[in-house]
């Protein structure tokens, strides 16, 4: 058992003026240092809301959310940013920046209000660029990067924060297979190398199962199942959560699902109708 980094007890969140059903309903979980936990589930199941509770940008309507042993919303943003690196879902720079400047933003929580970054800060940025394999992009404008490069730069920025936890919110949603795999591999390696608490929000259940130590399957705001991939990824759970028939298979000992076609007759039949 590692040190507990994130912890929730019956955490509830209702959007003000939102529907009666809470976006997050009584979720209890804990995430330790050194483990990679994936929060999976369909669109609108409360994944991102749950992550925002953990990151302290939303105040729970009920229950408790702790980060590093303290209520997540009680932290000063700056102190929390020294501990948690986040690659959020959407981000668009309003003004042009170079890659090195963007990654230096990761040092901002550690810098004073005035004065230039120190040699130590510059070294931390260089290490992060190197580690995420984007050092050669250092002088490029971020607007000229491909989607995969930009996501690795953002992971590098999170790494430059020298955090103890790393959170990615749908960070690979728009990437092709190679770049998506690169981001997943990198995240998993960083979590192990630095004993970070890793939190991955994604709807790619198969990939999550192969990279994460534990899965939290969200369904209508609740944690429908929590545990190791082989414990939670069953046909029942997936069909209930995703509202779609699936067949289960296995790859390298980890369960994987295949979504079935509705009109096809048999299990996993690829139907020869051609469309």
């Amino acid at each position: 058992m590692g040190e507990v980094i994130f912890e929730t007890r019956n955490a509830v969140y209702r959007y003000p003026g939102g529907p009666e059903i809470p976006a997050v309903a009584a979720v209890t979980l804990s995430i330790d240092a050194g483990e990679l936990v994936a929060i999976v589930g369909p669109n609108g199941s409360g994944k991102t809301t749950l992550l925002r509770l953990l990151l302290g940008t939303l105040q729970p309507s009920d229950g408790e959310v702790l980060a590093f042993g303290r209520r997540a919303t009680e932290w000063k943003r700056r102190d929390l940013a020294q501990r948690i690196g986040v690659v959020s879902q959407r981000e668009e720079a309003a003004f042009p920046l170079r890659v090195k400047q963007a990654v230096m933003f990761g040092r901002y929580p550690h810098l004073g209000p005035l004065g230039a970054p120190s040699a130590g800060d510059i070294a931390a940025v260089d290490r992060a660029l190197e580690r995420c394999d984007v050092a050669h992009l250092g002088d490029r404008w971020i607007a000229t990067l491909s989607g995969g490069e930009w996501q690795r730069v953002r992971v590098a920025r999170a790494l430059a924060q020298e955090p103890r936890a790393l959170a990615l919110d749908e960070a690979t949603a728009s990437l092709d297979i190679r770049h998506e795999m690169e981001v997943f591999e990198l995240t998993a390696q960083l979590v192990r190398e630095n004993r970070l608490a890793g939190v991955l929000v994604t709807h790619h259940v198969n990939l999550a199962a192969r990279f994460a130590d534990r899965l939290i399957v969200m369904h209508r705001g609740s944690a429908r199942a929590t545990g190791s991939p082989s414990e939670v990824l069953t046909r029942d759970v997936l069909e209930e959560v995703f509202q779609w028939p699936v067949a289960m298979t296995e790859w390298e000992g980890v369960p994987q699902y295949v979504a079935l076609r509705r009109r096809s007759g048999g299990e996993g039949g690829e139907g020869g109708e051609g469309d």
Partner: peptide, 14 residues
């Protein structure tokens, strides 16, 4: 300049 939420995650009390 990154947006309010990314700014908060990097330590700004927006």
């Amino acid at each position: 300049s990154l947006g309010e939420e990314p700014a908060a995650f990097l330590g700004a009390d927006v």
